[in-house]
Amino acid sequence: MSAIASAASDRKQAMSLMALLAAGSLLATLALMLAHRGASGSVVITLALATWAIAWFANVIWSRSEGLPSLLTRLAPAAVPLLFGLTLLFLWEVICVGLKVPTVLLPAPSLILARLFASLPTLGADFVQTFVRAAVPGWLIGSAAGFLVALACDRSDFLRRGLIPIGNFVSALPIIGIAPILVMWFGFDWQSKAAMVVVMTFFPMLVNAVAGLAAAGRLERDLMYSYGASWLQTLLALRLPAAMPFLFNALKINASLALIGAIVAEFFGTPTLGMGFRISTEVGRMSLDMVWATIVIAAIAGSAFFGALVLLEKRVTFWHPSNRG
């Protein structure tokens, strides 16, 4: 009896969610069409607000997931934020177009996307200059150097006690400020940007790697000691695997820092290439659509880099309690 009733309410909840989604997309399409045809602002905004309210209501039902079929419930963790993001994007577009917001203030997403595809060669060359030439090599060198110094700290307690407080202090400083000096030392091209990234990524890796190398438990260490294992054997068989979650944490922090460092260092001078260069010159020319297009590329590059690291981390630290399936 109750099973039948709940099945019926299942269907009812799912139907109302579907109806909301359908009504929302219909209204959204209507609002977009009217906005682009130059309808009056108040009409467009009313439609947009109605769409937003419907989407929000759909999200409330979906995120509660009570009485929804299991397929919809399983989709919820991805669908709810996606719907929210799409709604925001829609509002941005409709408000910019409908209220004729000046491009200098905020260009519409459609405008940014059009600019993005029209300028792919330029943006691609900028991406190579900033990401491939500066950010990634700097990230590799800085992280590797931080790790090697952490190993040295492991051998020398004096070094560790001296460097860790300094490392913690430096991580609170606006290191990015040394960019003009590095540009002066290493020239305008990617070398100075890579150097910036090296400096920025060194300390997070140092501090995390030292913590990671201390992460292996006492019994696990005693075990290796009872085998008469050498420092290297203990490192490879126990301490390095145990440090992996810490090392990946640093690599992920450094991935975001690398892109920021490379872009901001370009504000202090570059050849006529690079994402930071593009942002600062196009801002000067008030062509904000190009600036936003560069930001979109930076966001995609940043999240792809980060996402790749997350996937790799899941493979390497499959044994960690947070990853056990």
Binding site: G217, E220, Y227, Q233, L238
Partner: peptide, 27 residues
């Protein structure tokens, strides 16, 4: 001697078999 601790102290990144082989690898 072989030592057995209060806790199993097995390395979670190794399979059961690889854990038993650990001292043999060290040797």
């Amino acid at each position: 001697y072989g030592y057995v601790f209060q806790a199993p102290a097995l390395y979670p990144w190794r399979t059961v078999e690889a854990n038993v082989m650990l001292p043999l690898e060290v040797f």
